[in-house]
Write a protein that binds this DNA or RNA. Sequence first.
DNA 1: TTGACAAATGAGACCGGTCTCAAATAGCAT
DNA 2: ATGCTATTTGAGACCGGTCTCATTTGTCAA
Lengths: 375, 375
Amino acid sequence: MSNKIVQKRLVTLQDVAREAGVSKATAARVLGSYGTASPEMKEKVLNAARVLGYQPNELARSMTTGRSRTIGVIVGDIENPYFGQAVRGISEVASAAGFDVILANSGEEVGREQAAVQVLLGKRVDGLIITPASMSDIQHLEAVQRSGRALVLLDRAIPKLKVDSVITDDKAAAALATRMLIEAGHRRIAYITATASDDPIYRGPQQISLTTVMDRINGFLAASAAVGIKHPEQYIRLGASRQGASGRIIADLLSMPHRPTAILASDNVVGLEVFKVIRNLGMSIPADLSLIAFHDADWTSVTSPPITVISQPVYNLGVESAQILIKRITGAVGAPKRLVLATELIERQSVGAPPAPQDDEKKVKSRPVAKAVAG
Amino acid sequence: MSNKIVQKRLVTLQDVAREAGVSKATAARVLGSYGTASPEMKEKVLNAARVLGYQPNELARSMTTGRSRTIGVIVGDIENPYFGQAVRGISEVASAAGFDVILANSGEEVGREQAAVQVLLGKRVDGLIITPASMSDIQHLEAVQRSGRALVLLDRAIPKLKVDSVITDDKAAAALATRMLIEAGHRRIAYITATASDDPIYRGPQQISLTTVMDRINGFLAASAAVGIKHPEQYIRLGASRQGASGRIIADLLSMPHRPTAILASDNVVGLEVFKVIRNLGMSIPADLSLIAFHDADWTSVTSPPITVISQPVYNLGVESAQILIKRITGAVGAPKRLVLATELIERQSVGAPPAPQDDEKKVKSRPVAKAVAG
DNA sequence: TTGACAAATGAGACCGGTCTCAAATAGCAT
DNA sequence: ATGCTATTTGAGACCGGTCTCATTTGTCAA
């Protein structure tokens, strides 16, 4: 990591002033569009600037004004189209309001998130929009607040932190999806999430570090309990992140003696993974297994069958959070807002009745699995 | 767009120096890790910094050093996973080398690209990685070079501009895909691209503003000509951008008297659009129509049938461009490099023989297609 | 004609760092 | 003890803007 950086000397305000034969202050007034200046002065200065190819140094500008007209955005994974859409929403609002956006990636790791916060605060962003990687490790977020910079949480809330947040109604959404599966006749429903965990088995809330995940699990459990399903939590699986463990987790789940007959996939990446595993196992959707996934990713509408999804207003999540942030930056005061956007269940064709008539719970004599696996 | 921005005064180097009872210069040496300082001084300063919660102002730092350790990236569309992957490649190389990334979106419009360049140069980025929206409108890129800042083009070259670029072998890739379709028996092959155009019909190279598009069309035409296909260009269609026109364009194409029997889709967004239209038309792939798409997007592997694609090393495109850029920033000199990465044809199941025995060109009596299609 | 006031302009401080340079101190050989 | 060099420290200029304040010029009413 060499440090030698070569950079040509650029045209400064002073240069322009000299060329135009006016003082630095006058040139600054014209070029910075503030204060007063006579038409002739403007003419001269603008001309000189054009001739020299002057370009203001925003760094210097920000340094004196104390504001950078820049907002920092930290997301879990830029590559995930989910965040891509949110970022587009943010960008559009920001640039319409004359703000620039600096984007950073946390890879869903608190450490990298902290580093990113440092960097962005160092660059003196006027505010931050963050998709926090954890709801417990939050000193760096408190530091943001202490520094007086605006902060908005996107997609995930942090109960302990009094801060504006824009989220979706995860609990309601999960409950709705669960009810839909229950109404189709399912009693053994699996819930699979990517949330990092050493242990794929769900043992309790203390394993979960994200409100989204917790809320969804709660919605799932509540809807299950409402119809008297016993131990719905036994089919919850964690850590189905990226290619790695997910295949095994899902395969294990499906080879249980009382295997689940439906799966709720907690995000589109997991959903895609689940879909592939199911297909590789030679099972068919929804005949053998029903599937509902979070996030209306583009792939979900072109599979056979297309997948029933919980569509999240993620573009609007971006828009709203940027609007709130910019209001704060420009002086809005008041208690932190928590904006909850509604989700929508888009019915497609991945939900059907559970496969065989099969005794549930108690005195079940499990019969041999009939399915042929094609390979 | 209000301008009032409230910001608490932050802890400065001067404050730390005062607290530690040393000079500003000494505090700066300790906190900036340069020059020399005795252990006791370090101790005192570090302690004071911790107590006050000091955080260096990178703006001020950049201003004096003249370098910001930041690189600007301008892509056509953040939301497109294609660019998402490239950006990840860039980010990883950049942060490993201690550089930050500022991301901007051009929406594939030259005007917005120019504005973004202004903004980023204003923020004094040390270098830029750009996916240029046009190969002809390039004054702003020449301005970047004149300013002495490093510049690397990603994915698309600009022949007139002497500048480092990292691209893929588009012509070869298109030719390979075309040959594959030809070998499967196709003679009427459509090429559909998203490139903006008022007129969806291809009339000549002057309509095309991107090397990628041009190269691919050339590869397509060359491979077609090589086996004596007459007027292959009649099936080229432009402007199939986003939801808008694409549906009509594709439907028109397929309702021609001698409709094409295969389609080459120029990127994954167009490919997805094509897939949906085909399905809505009730046609089946590959029985009625074969399809090959550029970019191995995730949806292509889960459709029925999965789509044969030209896989582009887009993550590596990002990695390589960032490496070249950083080398330039840190002083590397020499003629501009043009790095061409290889693509790969991933065969899946969307290519088959053309459908019905149907007279082709002149008096060819095409023989019945032997392949059985399982559906 | 003169005074009062508004508009235009310039001089220079300032933002928060880096970095040069000179002064102060320490270490060591003679 | 003395001189010489190496190390540590502080003072202050500088980066390129913004912005305050004083000065100059112009306008108009009394």
